[in-house]
Simulated assay, not measured.
Amino acid sequence: MMRGGKSYAPSQNRMPSVSVIIPTHRRPHLLRRAVESARAAGESVEVVVVDDASADETARVCRKLAGIKYVRLERNQGVAGARNVGILASSADYVAFLDDDDLRLPGSLDLQREALAADQRAGFACGAMLMSDQSYRPTGEVFAPSHPGGDAFWELLELEFPVMPLSTLIRRECFLRVGLLGRHLSGIDDWDIFVRIAEHYPVLVTGRPVGLYRRPTPSSGQGSSAQAAQLRRVARHQLQLLRLPRAQAAPAGRRRAARGRALNRLADTLLWNAAWQVPRKE
């Protein structure tokens, strides 16, 4: 099912400080830019590219990318499955996820690693993102964390604190405590893991932008463009997250309030997206 490729250590005498996991499937033209952005984001970065059973030029492109760890999956595992394989193939104490069509900003991994090293309690650090169009031209929008940091369990559970994988750096020990990503949670595996981590660990928020996020379109092939189906999955899965020990220990009224706030947030998102797609008059 899995076959490994090149291995990489930033130097002969030093282990990497951060592992960046890049899952990819049939988009070889995007890989070089993503890999280069990961390298520029830190001084000692291990880049793990997980080829999720691509049947195109992906393997050939990866052979030409010096200094990466390349892992090929013989059967498609989906984004969460590929991320899990990347975690298991990586070696650093801190883990970042980078989609093949997004970019990390220079120095951003070092910034977040230093913040986590200074606060051993925190499970992950998150920062702001710059939004771009499909050609990587910044739109001028900045997606910034809406939480000051600290205990963010209920805000994440209620969808009041949206966190994107691109904007985060995660302490490896978190996966040992809460487990890996849920392969069956297509499109929401990241939300699920952040809630499960926040059940046990505080969150660090860094103000500076750390990544460039390519805004999805219906034809872009990005999973988040099929948002209505994704929001339905969120609504169903929140019921499972409300069974986590910390949620179950709270009063029933607190859980009902969390459910109501999440459903209201989902409804608002659907309405906003519908309004955004209405043609504007010139």
Rank of each mutant, 00 (worst) to 15 (best):
A122F: 09
V20T: 03
A144D: 08
L130Y: 03
Y136A: 07
R172W: 13
R215W: 14
W191G: 01
L130E: 12
G42K: 00
N84F: 01
M2T: 09
N76P: 07
A267G: 12
K281T: 11
V48I: 14
S225A: 15
P148V: 10
A34G: 10
L181F: 11
V48H: 03
L159S: 08
A198M: 01
S135R: 15
G179N: 02
N76C: 12
L176M: 08
E36C: 14
A122R: 06
S108D: 00
A55Y: 05
R171A: 10
M164Y: 14
A59R: 08
L204H: 09
W272H: 12
G127P: 03
L159F: 08
R232Y: 12
I193T: 13
A249E: 14
N273T: 04
P138G: 09
E74W: 10
G42Q: 02
L88S: 10
H237K: 06
L111V: 12
E141M: 07
G140P: 06
P209I: 01
A59G: 00
G123E: 04
R33Q: 06
A41G: 04
E74H: 10
P16T: 03
V20A: 01
L271H: 13
L176N: 11
E199W: 01
L185D: 14
P216S: 02
V49G: 12
R14Y: 10
L30K: 12
W272N: 13
M164Q: 13
R215I: 06
A144G: 06
A53I: 00
I170Q: 04
F153A: 07
M1C: 00
V163L: 14
D190P: 06
Y213D: 02
R27A: 11
E282S: 15
L241A: 04
P245S: 06
V50I: 09
L239T: 10
R60E: 15
G182Q: 11
L157C: 03
P251D: 12
R256P: 01
A252H: 15
G81L: 06
R280Y: 07
R39G: 00
E155Y: 05
D110E: 15
I193F: 04
I170G: 02
E155M: 09
N273G: 13
R75L: 08
R32M: 09
L65I: 11
D189H: 15
L231C: 03
R196C: 10
L103E: 13
G78K: 00
G81R: 05
L65N: 02
Q238L: 13
L212K: 00
L109F: 01
L169K: 04
L239H: 08
A115S: 08
E158P: 00
L241R: 12
Y70S: 01
M164D: 07
L30M: 14
N76G: 07
L111P: 03
A115F: 02
G123A: 08
Q248E: 14
H29K: 05
L105I: 01
Q277L: 11
R104E: 09
P202M: 12
V95E: 13
L212F: 10
A198S: 15
G67R: 08
A115W: 04
A152N: 11
E114C: 05
R255M: 05
A275S: 15
S11R: 14
I188G: 08
